[in-house]
Amino acid sequence: MKLKLKIWRQKNRNSKGKFEIYDLDNVSEEMTFLEMLDYLNSKLILEDKEPVAFDSDCREGICGMCGLYINGRTHGPEKEVTTCQLSMKAFKDRSTITVEPWRSKAFPVIKDLVVDRTSFDQLIQAGGYISADTGAAPEANSIIIKKETVDRAFDAGICIGCGACVATCKNASAMLFVGSKVTQLALLPQGKAEATIRAISMVAKMDELGFGNCTNTGACEAECPKGISISNIAKLNREYLYAKIQD
């Protein structure tokens, strides 16, 4: 394959970035998208040019480190994959591919395609946990939980924290990220004691960090590589309303 790549280049946090165009020949459709970028980088390095910085780690869709905005879509055109799982088969020969970093006030660009997602850590710090000190736990089977409930908690808990929901949302809202964590922990009996305070603190932190408001477009659900449902956002709204009524 022969490709034209239009890639966002930015030196560091404070500099103004711009797009650069790269022509890349001999791309195999067997490559993943990131292997294609690896290939581009190896060429750039040997041509004494600066390689493109991008994040990735596990390369099997579970660590959540990778994430690029490819041709106007988070993690590219395929459904329920991360960028590292995206195959070059999804692209046509001689096409132009535009690659941008996640764009959000809460995810500032550090370099090229790398963004700072510590705001997600801050959201979890605000209450995305169950306060069970080491050693304080009761016997695991003393807590009986319906299979259906645990399965729903699991479905909410499979979030990989990649940030695609924020990146794709027209409002850069983090409601799906927060909603899935609040839902997972509120469904489980172990997490119920803190459900109220958790919902309130996490939403307050979300607002403080500059994420936008949810307008229920459903884009996050459609683009989430793990297919996490916006019913988790409804649950968050419910938990929050209930928490505030009690407050």
């Binding site: 239009k6 106007g72 959000s104 477009t217």
Partner: peptide, 29 residues
């Protein structure tokens, strides 16, 4: 809300295909 939402993404995307993930009216309320 709209003003806040605009502020949440100070730099817009160069290429964007939102039609693939949401309806036009949901984005243009």
């Amino acid at each position: 809300l709209t003003l806040q939402n605009q502020a949440a993404r100070p730099i817009k995307y160069n290429t964007n295909s939102p039609a693939r993930n949401s309806t036009w009216s949901s984005r243009n309320m």
